[in-house]
Design a protein around this nucleic acid. Structure first.
Lengths: 181, 181
DNA sequence: TTTGGCATGTAATCCGTTACATGATTAG
DNA sequence: CTAATCATGTAACGGATTACATGCCAAA
């Protein structure tokens, strides 16, 4: 048996916090790829079957809402689904297996040339800068709309900022170290 | 098709940097669980088949070295294996899919009670403290043996320190924020 | 003597990605 | 008109975990 599936809880969570707004599978996928992109990812090939499964178990409710001839099914979380979500939120955080290929390659650094490692670190630095900027942007947006400040979202944004900044500093420091070898 | 297998490269990397020391599957597994535990993980159910596969392809060499009646096979990396490792080290870092359940649960925080989130954050703070202390300990050991300083290992240890510190600060800050709600 | 560590292996299972597939609508 | 986006689905494949399985050796 493999690790317990977490996709259903991501779906329940997104449907749960979205107020009463019903969402289609496509919209849920877009939300995963934008608002929680640095935290989680799912493929749509995984998402659609999970939606059907959750609906058949009564955790979400499906409603057909075709626009013109284009089919579209939107989902709303049910009270039963909210309970399930709550139970999961209360359960201990399940740690994911660490999988940091950059650190791994640096750890094996003696088996390659310094410029190779510098290339990897520069790429990481640039990626991290982009993430940091996006988090800062989100933070600004939240500050501009004081009505809609959601403290939980702010906490997660601050996590992104703290970790990106630390990673950026480390990368720049390490680039100097490698350049000096 | 799923993502390309990275276990073989972890094995080649560990056999590569271990000088000329031949290692058994058991020892490789132990190394994964200790020296790179915060960076990577593999199950032994995955490891042993990969060892056989790598040996059959000529990337590592197997030698039976029974101790008494206990069977033991040790492996050494071959020149061909070193080349394969180098090629992988030079290839771009493949990003792992983000999977941060703690941040996810905080993001869905409005669907549960504050004390639940505090519990999760406290657990994270304690785990992170332990990792930070271990990284600091490793750094100290490296400084005590100046002969054996491996700059690459130090860089990865510093990554652990930077990121743990940042995560720790963020967790403590967030705990204060939640306590004030 | 029995617990724990050493040591290796396989089978079942499944989560999740990639690729295949189809079609409507809208903007340039 | 045609490219991009909206929208939903399934099939194939495989990487990886968990569980099952076995046995030796040393120390308490």
């Amino acid at each position: 048996m493999a690790r317990t599936q977490r996709t259903p809880f991501v779906v329940l969570g997104l449907l749960g916090v979205s107020g009463r707004q019903p969402r289609s599978g496509y919209e849920i996928k877009k939300a995963i790829d934008t608002v929680i992109s640095h935290v989680w990812s799912e493929s749509h090939g995984q998402l659609y079957p999970v939606l059907k499964q959750l609906a058949s178990e009564g955790f979400i409710r499906a409603q057909d809402r075709p626009a013109g001839h284009r089919k579209k099914t939107v989902y709303t979380i049910t009270p039963k689904g909210r309970e399930r979500l709550r139970a999961w939120l209360e359960s201990p955080v399940e740690l994911s297996k660490p999988r940091d290929e950059l650190i791994l390659k640096l750890f094996f650094g003696s088996e390659t040339e310094i410029p190779v490692l510098i290339r990897h670190l520069e790429a990481h630095r640039d990626r991290t800068k982009a993430i940091l900027n996006q988090c800062l942007e989100w933070q600004k947006q939240n500050n501009r709309n004081p009505d809609r400040i959601m403290p939980f979202m702010l906490i997660t944004i601050r996590a992104g900022i703290s970790l990106s900044e630390a990673s950026l500093h480390w990368a720049e420091e390490s680039l100097k170290t490698l350049a000096a070898i």
